[in-house]
């Protein structure tokens, strides 16, 4: 029983980190319905940004999330204006190929600039806390991951308030649902899309800065997270912030519990199997509206 409970707790902790990664995609893909295969590369840039700020300026990743987030917001806006705006009205395949091209451009640029070496952060607030645990009824909860989980919750709350409770969020949702109608009430769709891309890139980069405390930093680090993020957003329901959070937790727990009882090779297979099962019962995802 303890083994199962420990696995659930481990899964929940990882789930919060997955949620952090998926949150940017919730806006770009889930809400604005634009495909971005370079999502993991924005994460990778966020990780490199945090690593570089730590090595060059001694800045802790928990502080560097501010400059990293701002820089990546600018990059997100730039990517939309210079690339995605031009392919937005085209065939979905054009969007796919444009963002796949962006994926290779960003990944190979990182190889050119940083080389393919693995980089590690070892002297940060969270890495210094590694090994610090809270023990509850025989269950061990890692303090650094707990802090990561709390940060994820704060980000989600902020995003939820922004999207669901502000005029800006309303304008964003209106643009996603009916661009022409939004224009009639004075909303500038291009601006909304640019802000959505900026926000999406900034959020996933902030996630990257936090993840840099737990994972090796290297140019190809984003891909496994991208795959999971797509599954999470689809599972949670497109555009649903709460759905993304719950789906991320579900994915974390499914991965963790499966591995305790079955060969680890089934870990991701069960994640996607649960997506198929939920897709059959609720094609719009757990909390999707359509």
């Amino acid at each position: 029983m303890t083994l199962l409970l420990q696995a659930i707790v481990n899964g929940l902790e990882m789930g919060f980190l997955y949620a952090l990664v998926a949150v940017g995609l919730t806006i770009i893909w889930g809400l604005m319905e634009m495909i971005n295969f370079a999502h993991g590369e924005f994460l990778m840039l966020g990780m490199f940004g945090a690593w570089w700020a730590s090595v060059a300026f001694g800045l802790d990743p928990l502080l560097s999330i501010v400059p990293v987030g701002l820089a990546m917001y600018a990059l997100g806006v730039l990517v939309y204006r210079q690339l995605m705006r031009r392919v937005q009205r085209g065939d979905p395949f054009t969007q796919i190929f444009a963002t796949v091209g962006l994926l290779f451009l960003l990944q190979n640029s990182a190889v050119a600039v940083f080389t393919s070496d693995y980089r590690y952060l070892s002297d940060t607030l969270l890495t210094r806390l590694s090994g610090a645990n809270v023990n509850l009824l025989g269950i061990t909860i890692g303090v650094p991951l707990l802090i990561g989980a709390l940060l994820a919750l704060v980000l989600f709350l902020a995003l939820y308030l922004l999207i669901d409770r502000t005029e800006f969020g309303l304008a964003l949702r209106a643009t996603a649902e009916d661009r022409e109608a939004a224009m009639l009430v004075g909303i500038r769709p291009q601006k909304m899309f640019a802000v959505a891309w900026g926000l999406g890139a900034a959020l996933v980069a902030v996630a990257g800065a936090i993840l840099a405390n737990f994972f090796a930093v290297f140019p190809q680090v984003g891909f496994p997270f991208t795959v999971l993020a797509y599954a999470i957003v689809a599972l949670g329901g497109f555009g649903s912030i709460l759905g993304t959070l719950l789906a991320a937790l579900l994915v974390g727990v499914v991965q963790s519990v499966t591995t305790v009882y079955l060969p680890p090779a089934f870990k991701d297979a069960f994640v996607f199997a649960s997506y198929i099962v939920i897709g059959l019962c609720r094609p719009q995802g757990l909390f999707g509206r359509f």
């Binding site: 083994l3 420990q6 696995a7 481990n10 899964g11 902790e13 990882m14 997955y18 994972f215 891909f223 496994p224 997270f225 999971l228 974390g252 991965q255 963790s256 519990v257 499966t258 591995t259 305790v260 060969p263 680890p264 090779a265 870990k267 991701d268």
Partner: peptide, 20 residues
């Protein structure tokens, strides 16, 4: 005897099994 996928994002459950 545990085999895990290259590109794993967590190995916490594998560690649990090893520990056990």
């Amino acid at each position: 005897d545990l085999t895990t996928k290259t590109g794993a994002t967590t190995l916490a459950s594998e560690v649990q099994r090893l520990q056990a």
